[in-house]
Design a protein around this nucleic acid. Structure first.
Length: 280
DNA sequence: CGTGTTTGACCCGCGC
DNA sequence: GCGCGGGTCAAACACG
């Protein structure tokens, strides 16, 4: 991510001042850092918002394109197979439609409920595995080859809690076989425990390997906790941004020899001052 | 032996 | 009512 490249290292060269000024300079520096921190938080939040907006637009565009393609495909098939039928009437649109579309066309199933949502996970091209590591324990209870997609669809239940109603369907994307489409249904009736940690660590691992398809903080949270509502996700997103900034700041500070030297000088100077004050 | 996976059979809703 | 297709069940199997 570009934001990780932001140079947050501090210009602390002017810290080497007479010891009487060091405290004031440090306090000033802290104030300046606080302001900078605020500014960075705002910038990052804005970036996240525009990123999400762009992704929404992109998915909308892709859906529209899919619809157009399907219409064209349906027309082609219709001409080929049933030349006597009406061009636009009686076509089973569910054939060869994307997963998303077919789900939308089955309103009687729970899949269409707002609690069902999709996650795209990029895998290695050679991998035939239908397993998506999302921090929960899943038990596979079925596999089926569907009409619209030659790759099999795997059905999973959450096995962490005996009565957990959550189900997951995993199938390779029709457009890109290296992308697994995981559809989650329902809400977990148990806590996350290690799920969040393992999820974030796996996300980091995937990021290290360069294989993450979705990577905004919000999406990480969606993958981590399917049952979370969006407000909660927003709150968590903000806190994760803050955590990220703090971590970034701490890394920059600890990597800056000027800062550590200045800090050591300031601390030792203050200790000496206090000792002198106590003595006199 | 317990747990998880595989896979063919079965169930059920939908469209015709 | 029938056929189709997605979803689920459950016996058989694999594995540690």
């Amino acid at each position: 991510m570009e934001s990780t490249c932001i140079d947050t290292s501090l210009n602390l060269n002017n810290i080497n001042l007479p010891s009487t000024y060091k405290d004031e300079v440090l306090v000033e520096e802290l104030h300046r850092l606080s302001c900078e921190n605020k500014r960075l938080s705002e910038t990052l939040t804005n970036m996240c918002e525009s990123y999400e907006a762009m992704q929404k637009q992109l998915s909308q565009l892709m859906m529209n394109q899919n619809l157009e393609n399907q219409t064209q495909e349906s027309r082609k098939r219709k001409i080929e197979s049933e030349s006597c039928m009406n061009m636009f009437g009686g076509v089973r649109e569910c054939s060869n439609v994307s997963d998303e579309e077919s789900l939308m066309k089955r309103p009687c199933r729970d899949i269409s409920s707002p609690k069902a949502y999709k996650v795209l996970v990029k895998t290695e091209a050679s991998s035939n595995s239908l397993y998506v590591m999302d921090g929960y324990q899943w038990r596979k209870y079925g596999q089926k080859v569907t009409r619209d997609n030659p790759s099999p669809r795997a059905y999973f239940r959450c096995s962490k809690a005996p009565n957990c109603p959550v189900k997951k369907k995993v199938q390779k994307s029709l457009e890109d076989p290296t992308i697994l489409v995981a559809t989650y249904e329902g809400e977990h009736n148990h806590g996350h425990e290690k799920a969040e940690i393992s999820m974030i660590s796996s996300q980091c691992e995937e990021a290290r390997l360069g294989s993450v398809h979705v990577s905004s903080p919000k999406q990480i949270m969606e993958r981590t906790s399917p049952s979370m509502n969006l407000n909660l996700v927003d709150n968590v997103q903000k806190s994760s941004i803050q955590q990220f900034l703090v971590q970034q700041m701490a890394t920059s500070l600890t990597n800056d020899p000027n800062f550590t030297t200045a800090l050591a000088n300031a601390i030792s100077g203050r200790i000496l001052d206090n000792a002198n004050k106590a003595r006199f």
